[in-house]
């Protein structure tokens, strides 16, 4: 399954997107180092979110078009496992690398170096649910030719909690009790999406096969 995904990912484009955003943000906000440092965690989370979103509509599209999903649906594995594997593959090939690569880019935004490990840690924790929720959106648009906008509309509201707690964990010291509870919630969100997403995307894809 991971093998099948290997060539399909849009990591390159997503990475390029993040870089472009990183360049654009200072241009939009102005080169004020203090302001940038303050905004950086939130903006970087936003960049991560959007770039994962960018790849979401491709998760199932190819398999749907070439008929692989037909055969997978008939196989001995429950279809939920197929979607689970797909989402995991997406996480491993897109979200996780992005979550690892993005924080060092924070240096460009004059982010406080002491915060970087926390940023990376929270992004890795959050990227899990990002991929799994993206799979739901990917399933909805598997059979549509231009699903990009629909994916954004559907998935962005689902990303709200991840964004809130992700930034909270990153910004840590702002909160009353540090970033540990936020990290916990972030992981809980990941678990929740782990439960819901394979089921939901399998059911949606089945509707397309029908």
């Amino acid at each position: 399954m991971t093998l099948a995904k290997r060539q399909g990912g849009g990591l390159g484009a997503a990475l390029g997107f993040i870089l472009a955003v990183m360049v654009l943000i200072p241009l939009a906000v102005g080169p004020d180092q203090n302001l940038l440092g303050k905004l950086a965690p939130g903006l970087m989370w936003l960049a991560l979110l959007l770039s994962v979103l960018l790849t979401a509509d491709r998760i199932f599209q190819q398999d749907f078009e070439d008929g692989s999903l037909d055969v997978m649906a008939m196989g001995p594995l429950p279809f939920e496992f197929v979607t689970l594997a797909k989402a995991c593959a997406h996480w491993l090939t897109v979200s996780l690398p992005l979550a690892v690569i993005t924080p060092p880019l924070g240096m460009l935004m004059s982010i406080d170096a002491a915060r970087l490990p926390m940023l990376m840690f929270s992004m890795i924790a959050g990227s899990f649910s990002l991929s799994f929720l993206a799979a739901i959106g990917g399933a909805v648009t598997a059979g549509l030719r231009r699903g990009g906008l629909l994916v954004s509309l559907l998935i962005l509201p689902l990303y709200v909690p991840v964004l809130i707690f992700g930034v909270a964990a990153t910004a840590g010291d702002m909160g009353p009790s540090g970033s540990v509870p936020a990290l916990g919630v972030l992981m809980a969100l990941g678990l929740m999406s782990l439960v819901i997403s394979p089921w939901a995307s399998a059911a949606i894809l089945k509707a397309y096969l029908r």
């Binding site: 099948a4 060539q7 399909g8 190819q62 078009e65 070439d66 008929g67 692989s68 055969v71």
Partner: peptide, 12 residues
């Protein structure tokens, strides 16, 4: 089941 589409990955 062998349908209209071949269920093949072009890159492999």
């Amino acid at each position: 089941y062998v349908g209209h589409s071949d269920a093949l990955k072009p890159a492999l």
